[in-house]
Nucleic acid binder design. Structure first.
Lengths: 207, 207
DNA sequence: TACCCGTTGTCAACATTTTTTCAAATTTAT
DNA sequence: ATAAATTTGAAAAAATGTTGACAACGGGTA
């Protein structure tokens, strides 16, 4: 069904999903690409073209059924599947991830944190147990979590990722300030790059 | 000096900066676009073309002087300037931002947090005082911080940003799960979009 | 039924980004 | 000193992404 979907289009899907969700909450049942384009500040043509990568969800003369489209994009994004996540590193970032409840609604469940600080091991954050980092591999082979969030210092990240990959992890959500390359999909949340970009834009005052 | 720099190029600068910094730490004094391209997994010609937006830093037959190039990109990114940051919201994300020490080295100083929870106001995180959110506007007009990190729930974000903008903020670093539009540069760190994208990629196993 | 209106899906035009190519500059080797 | 090897910067070509245009469709209305 899905033609070959350009990377850029896939990156825009979560945003469509978000806006459609908002419309849904407001009780809107149908929406045209034009109406959506005005809210999202993109061209209507782009919306239609993007959605068409996955098949014709709209109806001519009518627009798109909000519920159906939201549902469909959720399906494409894999939000109907249930993903179990482990968080490596129970420092500030690890804690922030563990505490964010919004993911659960979308089928993402955080089931364990790992750290090597003895004073943290055995404790809980937001009800989630902190386990000994020495046991990551064994834990993964037994419980088969799909995603690992990497929230350890850069220098430690590479080794952790290697172990995770060998133990069958399917995706890496990387919060460390370094690029990771491995055989499974890696999605990096690069806070420092993002701040530098902001600094650049302030300095070169576009917008 | 800088021709009109495409957005995509600007987004790649922090990454160049990071890799050059690593080379520098390893004592490497010169590097060719080819050598850098192999480390960064991009094409050499992209590197050359990107750098040329800002002027010819290289030398034919030799390559680039690592120190000089690193310095130059830092300059372009505004890392020689000093940015003062306030963090709105002393929850998990606000705390994670406040605790990350790496920014300081690059000239980013976090000088205050704001929250409206009375049990937090008056406290400190990582030595940084937590102030009453009611005083944000007054604080900004007096102290003129350049950047505000938004770490409050989505529904509260829009109003906070409006006040900040009126009080002269120059850039917004947005951690809330919503898009903000205002007259100053906004850089969003979208954790949930990022996770959905990872989910999509795992499901549709590219890489 | 026949016409109008709003809106999609698609295709072509346009714009941007990436890659290829190569002359000119420089270093290294002989 | 000369030739060979490297490497940049720039221009051209190719690939990719975005926007504009419009036929085709379906619902509503007379």
């Amino acid at each position: 069904m899905a033609k070959n979907v350009p990377e850029v289009v896939a990156r825009r899907l979560p945003r469509y999903y978000r806006y459609l969700g908002e419309q849904l909450e407001q009780g809107v049942t149908k929406i045209s690409s034009r109406a959506l384009s005005e809210k999202m500040r993109v061209t209507a043509s782009q919306i239609r073209q993007d959605l068409n990568c996955f098949g014709g969800f709209g109806q001519q003369g009518y627009g798109y059924n909000v519920y159906e489209l939201h549902e469909k994009i959720g399906e494409i994004l894999g939000l109907n599947d249930r993903y179990r996540i482990i968080v490596i590193g129970a420092g500030n970032v690890g804690r922030a991830v563990a505490n964010y409840a919004g993911f659960r609604r979308r089928g993402f469940v955080i089931e364990a944190l790992f750290d090597n600080d003895p004073s943290l091991i055995g404790g809980r954050i937001n009800g989630i147990p902190i386990l000994d980092a020495a046991g990551i591999g064994a834990y993964c082979r037994e419980n088969k979590p799909q995603i690992a969030a990497i929230a350890v210092p850069s220098h430690a990240a590479e080794a952790v990722v290697e172990e995770l990959e060998e133990s069958g992890i399917q995706g890496i959500w990387n919060f460390s300030h370094t690029d990771l390359n491995c055989g499974v999909p890696v999605e990096t949340v690069h806070m420092s790059d993002s701040l530098m970009n902001l600094s650049y834009r302030i300095k070169n005052k576009e917008q």
